[in-house]
Simulated assay, not measured.
Amino acid sequence: MPRTPVYEQVIADVVAAIEAGTLKPGDKLPSIAELRERYESSAWPIRYALRILDERGWIETHQGKGSFVKGKDGT
């Protein structure tokens, strides 16, 4: 059985944490370095996952500050 790509694992885990209430609006996601270590991955799939989460409206990313969970009203 093929292994799920890292970026899909990251997306699924972040979305599940938001839906479960573990991550709340305004919460900061772990840094790319922390996520790289957690998923034993290079930075590329982590950045790709964060970009997709941002495009889908789950998070917002601010260069130099990090990625944060968006609220239901988009903030």
Score class of each variant (00 low, 15 high):
Met1His: 07
Met1Gly: 04
Met1Gln: 06
Pro2Gly: 04
Pro2Cys: 04
Pro2Lys: 10
Arg3Asp: 05
Arg3Tyr: 10
Thr4His: 13
Thr4Pro: 11
Thr4Asn: 14
Pro5Arg: 08
Pro5Asp: 05
Pro5Gly: 10
Pro5Trp: 04
Tyr7His: 09
Tyr7Gly: 05
Tyr7Ile: 03
Glu8Met: 13
Gln9Thr: 06
Gln9Arg: 13
Gln9Lys: 08
Gln9Trp: 06
Gln9His: 09
Val10Phe: 08
Val10Leu: 11
Ile11Arg: 13
Ile11Met: 11
Ala12Gly: 08
Asp13Tyr: 00
Asp13Ala: 10
Asp13Glu: 00
Asp13Cys: 01
Val14Leu: 00
Val15Gly: 03
Ala16His: 09
Ala16Tyr: 05
Ala16Gln: 08
Ala16Asp: 11
Ala17Cys: 06
Ala17Leu: 03
Ile18Val: 15
Ile18Met: 10
Ala20Val: 03
Ala20Ile: 00
Gly21Glu: 02
Gly21Pro: 08
Gly21Trp: 01
Gly21Tyr: 01
Thr22Gln: 10
Leu23Asp: 01
Leu23Tyr: 02
Leu23Gly: 02
Lys24Gly: 01
Lys24Asp: 02
Gly26Leu: 00
Asp27Cys: 01
Asp27Ser: 02
Asp27Phe: 02
Lys28Tyr: 09
Leu29Thr: 09
Leu29Pro: 04
Pro30Asn: 10
Ser31Ile: 13
Ser31Cys: 08
Ser31Gly: 14
Ile32Glu: 13
Ile32Cys: 12
Ile32Met: 07
Ala33Phe: 04
Ala33Lys: 14
Ala33Glu: 15
Ala33Thr: 13
Glu34Val: 09
Glu34Arg: 14
Glu34Asn: 13
Leu35Val: 03
Leu35Gly: 03
Leu35Phe: 08
Glu37Gln: 11
Glu37Cys: 00
Arg38Thr: 10
Arg38Trp: 06
Arg38Tyr: 11
Tyr39Phe: 12
Tyr39Asn: 04
Glu40Asn: 12
Ser41Met: 02
Ser41Trp: 00
Ser42Gly: 14
Ser42Thr: 11
Trp44Cys: 10
Trp44Asn: 12
Trp44Arg: 13
Pro45Asn: 05
Ile46Asp: 02
Arg47Val: 14
Arg47Gly: 15
Arg47Gln: 15
Arg47Ile: 13
Tyr48Lys: 05
Tyr48Trp: 15
Ala49Leu: 08
Ala49His: 06
Leu50His: 03
Leu50Gly: 02
Arg51Ile: 12
Ile52Glu: 09
Ile52Lys: 15
Ile52Leu: 14
Ile52Asn: 12
Leu53Phe: 13
Asp54His: 07
Asp54Val: 11
Arg56Gln: 15
Arg56Gly: 05
Gly57Phe: 09
Gly57Asp: 05
Gly57Trp: 11
Gly57Gln: 06
Trp58Gly: 03
Ile59Leu: 09
Ile59Gln: 06
Glu60Ser: 15
Thr61Lys: 15
Thr61Ile: 11
Gln63Asn: 14
Gln63Leu: 14
Gly64Pro: 07
Gly64Ala: 10
Gly64Cys: 04
Gly64Leu: 04
Lys65Phe: 11
Gly66Leu: 02
Gly66Phe: 02
Ser67Cys: 06
Phe68Arg: 01
Phe68Asp: 07
Phe68Ala: 01
Val69Ser: 04
Lys70Leu: 15
Lys70Ile: 06
Lys70Met: 08
Lys70Gly: 01
Gly71Tyr: 08
Lys72Asn: 15
Asp73Arg: 12
Gly74Glu: 12
Gly74Val: 07
